[in-house]
Design a protein around this nucleic acid. Structure first.
Lengths: 254, 254
DNA sequence: TGGTCGCATTGACCTAGGTCAATGATCGAT
DNA sequence: ATCGATCATTGACCTAGGTCAATGCGACCA
């Protein structure tokens, strides 16, 4: 049973914080909306928070809601009948969750950390969507970006070694961290790995054991340093990129 | 150097066949266009044919053109510096090739068979796109479908065995074949594999040898029959679905 | 202060699929 | 008819990463 099934739509007024102050205002689906369009969305939005591990939607389920990640990380995964699982996307703040125009969810969405979503009911959202080209345009753009990311991941899953997979993933997290706290330059980059080893394994198409071993190997090689299992430091970003099997120049911190 | 670099835009008039008669009219990006919108596209479209193996665009290249596959199969692939290659999408008639809103191609596009494309220059297409919600809507819909397909493929690449990969791929081709020539029921399904073993391997994240061995294995198991290396018969579609590791009911021929 | 529960690490072993190499089969060009 | 090319198949071997199992390490609870 999905976490989105029994939402009370009568949201208390104080929950409706101002879109203008929203942290993801300029990166989410609403990025291109002007003030009037924004207030249309504002009128129908509501928030919901999910605990780590909580299911947001289940594959095959009819999804009545869709919206943006405001805070936290959501994993989208597919599962084979015998339980093999593959995570097909990690959604960070400003990414959207839920499939417009198709009510049946093609994959599970699970809160990896504490997650706060800015949601709309499907019908309301699609009504606004039809009248708001700015929204549709941004949605297309974001979907194209997701598609590119998915295809990058296909290369990783199909052709990279376990070590390269881990290094590539850390590369991405490091880049995100660098982008967020602009202060940190590329000489010493710290970040928190928001996932358990199991979630990492599911994302990379590996087993927990291999993830563990390769992280240890990268640590012993001096490419990363671990304060504990979740707190990672990258002393030399270029070295990490090298281990990721990427062109040394590709994916610079801009 | 891409096959799309030196196109003569002064297309002979006789090349402009009628959109109304086009085989992909109701499935391509133009599907939702009315007659007037269609004639706008008609005015700026042109066709180009590519030989098997010919490069359509190269990754990293500035793509001046985008459009739809009218005939044939196009493979989109990514390559690592050391030459490992992963095909990230196979585009069939009515699929579109080229990334709207982003001029740099993120992957190579190669003609797998003889390919005929219905093309637009990027600038002209984007101008029409801005004024044509029907086009934008269809593009969003098709991109969402591509994203779902890409994520399905991530599950295959990350978690399926070589045998399941092959069987899954054949499943898709069989379904396509069944949809095209409606006459064939599901008792004996024939189709042509349009790819070399190498192209199959690139798509499935395997080596040619493994592809070959697993096809032999499926043949010996009676799941498929081969007239020659490229002509395949599926005597029992359900058995193939089983070998693909899919839920027996999922993906029925509708 | 010990107990248990959920994660993470490590070791010993095994196997699916990769690598390397030989052999066919088909086809177009000479 | 013969020569190359290209593509596919098959065999012998090897290895990256999976499997199984033990151990460690906090964190939270009683």
């Amino acid at each position: 049973m999905s976490g989105l099934q029994n939402i009370d739509l009568r949201v208390p007024r104080q929950a409706r914080e101002n879109c203008a102050d929203c942290a993801i205002r300029h990166r989410a689906i609403c990025a291109y909306c002007g003030p009037d369009e924004l207030s249309q969305l504002e009128a129908i939005k509501f928030y919901k928070t999910f605990a780590p591990g909580e299911e947001i939607v289940a594959a095959g389920e009819n999804t009545e809601f869709l919206g943006s990640v405001v805070e936290g990380v959501v994993a989208l995964s597919k599962t084979l009948v015998d339980g093999r699982r593959q995570t097909v996307g990690l959604m960070f703040p400003s990414d959207y969750v839920g499939r417009p125009m198709r009510p049946i969810a093609p994959y599970d969405a699970v809160a990896v950390t504490t997650v706060r979503l800015c949601l709309f009911t499907r019908t309301r959202f699609e009504r606004v969507l039809r009248e708001t080209p700015a929204l549709e345009k941004r949605l297309l753009e974001m979907t194209l970006d997701e598609l590119d990311a998915a295809r990058d991941w296909m290369l990783l899953l199909g052709r990279k070694s376990a070590r390269e997979k881990i290094a590539t993933f850390l590369t991405i997290l490091a880049r995100r961290a660098a982008a967020l706290d602009k202060k940190t330059p590329d000489d010493g980059l710290n970040f928190v790995l928001p996932l358990t080893r199991e979630a990492v394994a599911d994302y990379l198409g590996l087993t927990i054991e291999t993830v563990s071993r390769q992280i240890t190997a990268l640590r012993k090689a001096g490419v990363i340093e671990l304060a504990d299992a979740r707190n990672i430091r990258v002393p030399d970003y270029t070295a990490l990129l090298g281990a990721a099997g990427e062109d040394a120049d590709g994916g610079m911190i801009d």
